[in-house]
Design a protein around this nucleic acid. Structure first.
Lengths: 225, 225
DNA sequence: TTGCCCACGATTGTATACAATAATGCCCTC
DNA sequence: GAGGGCATTATTGTATACAATCGTGGGCAA
């Protein structure tokens, strides 16, 4: 069984990511208490952790507010993601194990079939596999501190609904990036892996910016990068 | 007046950085309570923040332990610092203001005179100016998230006493890096600034590793990078 | 009417009491 | 005598009560 603090963290985080808590909204500890079914103490701990993750901002004696991203910040976040995930890919290329490589190949196939199909859960299957793909690379990089940094910039873009904004050519390019990443890993070439990963993230960034309406709203999924 | 939580954070952090708490030491909340003169609640918050900063590690129902760095981790941390501060220098080059540039020039002079002199506070003066020099660049980068990432890898090397390990040629090279950074900023050349900053951090890393005895002990100051 | 000041309410910050969990040492069994 | 299981105890996790602080509204004066 997990701790009450963890439950509170997950519940509040999910609410923010799926849009239940709008950007800029003031989060009152007493309200979160009844939402999560725990007392204020674990709620407070959860809020501090969310503040570290960049999902809420904290001001003394005024509590927590859900972050409201400006368009400039989105560029900034994707630039940081490119830096961090690029570095992770470089490390991963030198450390990845064969079982991990097999998993990557399978996930790449999963994504390609998800794209080719047309079921209702098409997007969900794709995003799930994509998330795992990137998670495996971070795991292969094998650096706790790098993982902590990634957490600072991975969560936030999730507040944007992006999957539906990718055109077919953009998705195809994303697939090619995945395949080329695997090739770079097979060659154990850190520089190649890093370059492709950077391209992958930055391409996603531009696809997002170009297709994003001014006001971002609605239940969110996550970036396809 | 600051909050009790902040006081506890600063007190415990200082104890870790100056070596009062040895690596691997188990930090009991009740003991920290009497050390800091506050109750357990703010102590707990302080410990969580320290865990985020990478200075302590947390395991459920077992509390906090001061981190014990292995030699491999030091390389990893310096690689991350090179990545982050390099990126910060790149951004800073495009955003830095003239007053900030003037400050950098003054601090570079301060460091050079500190090195040239031979007073007892020689090292202290140098390190203080050096810290401010890097802080200004981070501020000029103007990215809260990047600052948060930097915090993950700036604090930890402080647990190592490094200043005394730099040879004269190494210090001279460090000074040249500072001057060249200023030149890159004046030219508003992000790529140049990033390259020099990476060199600066990585050079410091190797100077450290080469001069570090196997067991690192004693009151700590901070890295000269 | 408008601006400022004070008091009130709401909300966060802190302390302490209680519950739950994990480490430790002892005793029993083999 | 050694190993494992159980009870004890120390330590962390949680809840709640209290204190401090900030925003807000009303009232008073210019």
């Amino acid at each position: 069984m997990t701790t009450a603090s963890n439950r509170a963290f997950e519940i509040i985080r999910a609410q923010i990511l799926n849009g239940g808590f709008a950007g800029g909204m003031h989060l009152k500890e007493s309200e979160l208490t009844e939402l999560c079914g725990v007392s204020r103490t674990p709620v407070r701990e959860a809020l501090r952790r969310l503040a570290i993750s960049g999902l809420v901002v904290f001001t003394p004696h005024q509590g927590a507010k859900v972050v409201a991203l400006e368009s400039g910040e989105i560029d900034e976040i994707y630039a940081l993601r490119a830096m961090i995930e690029g570095h992770a890919a470089n490390r991963a290329a030198l450390r990845i194990t064969d079982p991990m490589l097999r998993q990557l190949r399978r996930l790449a196939l999963d994504m390609e079939t998800a794209i080719a199909g047309n079921g209702a859960d098409r997007a969900e299957a794709f995003l799930s596999a994509n998330r795992e793909f990137h998670a495996i690379i971070m795991a292969a990089a094998d650096s706790a501190r790098l993982g902590a940094m990634a957490a600072l910039v991975i969560d936030v873009p999730l507040t944007l609904r992006t999957m539906s904004r990718y055109s077919e050519p953009e998705l195809a390019r994303s697939m090619r990036h995945h395949r080329e990443l695997i090739s770079a890993f097979e060659a154990r070439d850190g520089g190649w892996a890093e370059a492709i990963m950077r391209s992958h993230i930055l391409a996603a960034s531009h696809a997002l910016v170009r297709n994003t309406p001014l006001e971002v709203k609605g239940p969110a999924t996550e970036s396809a990068a």
